[in-house]
């Protein structure tokens, strides 16, 4: 994770340090607005969240209507979170969801990016815009519209399956549910990831394809053997986003929840955090669970980056 080992950054960064003493203050001034905002709106709230996670709302004063007030309770909230089956089972569901959502988002994004970059396709401009458009649809609305398309009575898919004598597909129950929730995330996320990979593909020197093409390689072979390895860093980046996105999945199941009996308020960890914070008025517990989730995300990301570096670049 050390930036100085970066192949691209190394030489250039060193060149920038050419004349020390002349501009020691400039980079700090450039960074100042970002740093101030970073401290005020990220670091301080994080510190506050950690502080809150050590506190609890407990009844003070006598009587059945004693007021709940904040007091220090140590690590109780962490114990509660780590022993809560609701919270822990959420990670299992997260895994099932992630196994569908992450590979499909990345796979589709890569396929579309390669197709956009290939010489054998047309309708590129239209397709590129079309695939990116769902990214612009707010999550609240995305789940509402997919809800209409999933529910048996309003779904046009039901009309087709019923005409074929197959009955209706229970999109929002059983194991199909994972696919249905993942589909919304895939639909909304493919375009964004496609653009990242595509931007990277556009940077591959044309000579490389031409050489392969002269050797008689097909477009498919060029894509798999030449292009994919060259955009591996971009794929790692999108994988990281997809993974973080998975750990933070929340919006889609939350807005689908009122439409089905199969999604509980603790379906995924972030939903449990939200329930504790807003529905159960247990902000300290939510803060403890958040801290755990954030630390977990950090660890998973670091491990993924390490692995990716070793695999894709052999420079670890």
């Amino acid at each position: 994770m050390s930036p100085t080992t970066a192949t691209a950054a190394g030489p250039r960064a060193r060149a920038g340090a050419g004349r020390p003493g002349r501009r020691p203050v400039a980079p700090y001034l450039f960074l100042a607005p970002a740093l101030v905002l970073f401290v005020v709106f990220l670091l301080v709230p994080i510190g506050y969240a950690v502080y809150l996670s050590l506190r609890g709302l407990r009844v003070s004063g006598a009587g059945p209507f004693g007021r709940r007030e904040e007091t220090f309770i140590g690590l109780d909230n962490y114990v509660t979170a780590l022993t809560s089956t609701d919270f822990l089972e959420g990670f299992g569901r997260l895994l099932a969801y992630g196994v569908i959502a992450v590979p499909l988002t990345l796979g589709l994004a890569l396929v579309f990016a390669l197709l956009l970059d290939a010489t054998t396709t047309t309708a590129k401009r239209f397709s590129r815009t079309a695939i990116f458009i769902p990214y612009a649809v707010p999550g609240v609305i995305a789940s509402l519209l997919w809800g209409f398309l999933y529910l048996p009575t309003t779904s046009p898919i039901s009309d087709v399956t019923q005409a074929l004598g197959l009955g209706t597909i229970p999109f929002l129950s059983g194991s199909t549910l994972y696919g249905s929730v993942a589909n919304i995330a895939i639909w909304g996320g493919v375009g964004f990831n496609m653009i990242i990979i595509y931007t990277s593909l556009r940077g591959i020197p044309a000579e490389l394809h031409e050489a392969a093409r002269l050797d008689g390689a097909s477009e498919l072979q060029i894509a798999v053997r030449v292009k994919v390895p060259l955009v591996a860093p971009a794929i790692v980046l999108t994988a990281l986003f997809a993974l973080i996105g998975t750990l933070q999945v929340y919006g889609e199941p939350t807005t689908l929840r009122p439409m089905t009996t199969s999604i509980s308020q603790t379906w995924v960890p972030l939903m449990t955090i939200y329930r504790d914070a807003f529905t159960r008025d247990d902000l300290p517990l939510a803060a403890a669970a958040s801290v755990l989730l954030a630390v977990g995300t950090l660890l998973v990301s670091v491990v993924l980056l390490r692995l990716a570096q070793r695999r894709a670049f052999g420079d670890a």
Binding site: M1, S2, P3, T5, A6, T7, A8, A9, I196, T199, S200, R202, G203, I204, L230, V231, P233, A234, V236, L237, L240, L305, A308, Q309, A312, F313, D315
Partner: peptide
Amino acid sequence: MSALDSAVSPVV
């Protein structure tokens, strides 16, 4: 960090 740094840089 190289994985992330070079994600977009081949372009240049």
